[in-house]
C-alpha cells in the first residue's frame, strides 16, 4: 500500500562542488522506500555516503536531483521555513554526540522541539515529563547535561526526539560514544519504541552487529545501495 510508505526516495543524486569545476558525486541515484513502523538500518564504511544520505533524509541537505516524499509531502519543493516545520514535526534526531543544549536542564531540552512548534508552556512541560518517564529519566529532569552520564544524555536526547510525535526517528550512530552495556540499553529503548509505539526508526551505523537486530539492513557502498536483506537477530 502506497500510504504505508513514509520515506520515499527516488533517483537521489548528490553532487558537491569542490573548487571551480571539480564536482564530486557522492550519491549516484538512490532509490529507497521505508514503510511506516519499520526499523531500518543503513550500514556502510566511512566514505560510503551514508552521512550524506542521512542528511538528505533528515532534510538538513537537499539532493542535487531526484525526488523525496516524506509522509506524502514533496520536501524538495519546500522553502527553508517549511523545511524547518517539517523537521520539527516529522523527524526526531538522535546524534552520536547527544547534542543536548549546555546549561539547560533535561526537562528544558526535551521541551525544545515543542517550543519551536508553538506548544504552550504548561502543555509542553507536562508532555516533556511524560517522555522523560518513558525513557526512565524523570528523576533527573532538573539536571544539566554536564551532570549526566553518556547513557543518560542519550536517553534525554531520545525523549527530546519524541517531543512532537515524529513520524520517524533518525538515529546517527546513537551508541557510538557509549560502552557496550549502555549501548545495549539504548538499543533496547529503540526496540521498545518501535514495537510499542510503532515509531519508524532509521538507524545509521557502521556496526554490523547492531544492524542485524533491525528489520531490514540497507548496505551502502560508494554512493550506491549494494544490498538489502532482513536482519537475522530481529526479534518480532
Amino acid at each position: 500500500m502506497e500510504n504505508d510508505v513514509i520515506i520515499d526516495l527516488s533517483q537521489i543524486v548528490k553532487k558537491f562542488y569542490v573548487g571551480k569545476e571539480n564536482e564530486l558525486e557522492i550519491l549516484h541515484g538512490i532509490d529507497l522506500k521505508v514503510r511506516r513502523g519499520e526499523f531500518v538500518s543503513i550500514v556502510g564504511a566511512s566514505g560510503s555516503g551514508k552521512s550524506t544520505l542521512m542528511n538528505i533524509i533528515g532534510i538538513l541537505d537537499r539532493p542535487t536531483s531526484g525526488n523525496y516524499l516524506l509522509d506524502g509531502v514533496d520536501v524538495c519543493k519546500a522553502n527553508d521555513k517549511e523545511v524547518s516545520h517539517i523537521r520539527n514535526k516529522k523527524i526526531g534526531f538522535v546524534f552520536q554526540t547527544y547534542n543536548l543544549i549546555a546549561r539547560t536542564n533535561a526537562l528544558k531540552n526535551v521541551e525544545l522541539p515543542m517550543m519551536y512548534a508553538g506548544v504552550s508552556k504548561r502543555e509542553r512541560t507536562a508532555r516533556a515529563k511524560e517522555l522523560l518517564r518513558l525513557v526512565d529519566m524523570e528523576e533527573r529532569m532538573d539536571h544539566t547535561p554536564d551532570e549526566l552520564s553518556g547513557g543518560q544524555k542519550q536517553r534525554v536526547a531520545i525523549a527530546r526526539a519524541l517531543g512532537n510525535d515524529p513520524s520517524i526517528i533518525l538515529a546517527d550512530e546513537p551508541t557510538g560514544a557509549l560502552d557496550s552495556k549502555t549501548g545495549r540499553m539504548i538499543m533496547d529503548l529503540f526496540h521498545k519504541l518501535n514495537r510499542e509505539k510503532g515509531i519508524t526508526i532509521v538507524l545509521i551505523t557502521h556496526s554490523n552487529e547492531l544492524a542485524e537486530e533491525t528489520q531490514r539492513i540497507v548496505t551502502l557502498k560508494d554512493g550506491e545501495i549494494v544490498g538489502e536483506r532482513k536482519g537475522e537477530a530481529y526479534a518480532v
Partner: peptide, 16 residues
C-alpha cells in the same frame, strides 16, 4: 555553533 545546528535540526527556523 553545534547548539545552533542542533536547534535547527530540532525545527528552529532562521527567524527564531
Amino acid at each position: 555553533t553545534r547548539e545552533i545546528g542542533t536547534r535547527k535540526a530540532l525545527g528552529a527556523t532562521n527567524g527564531s
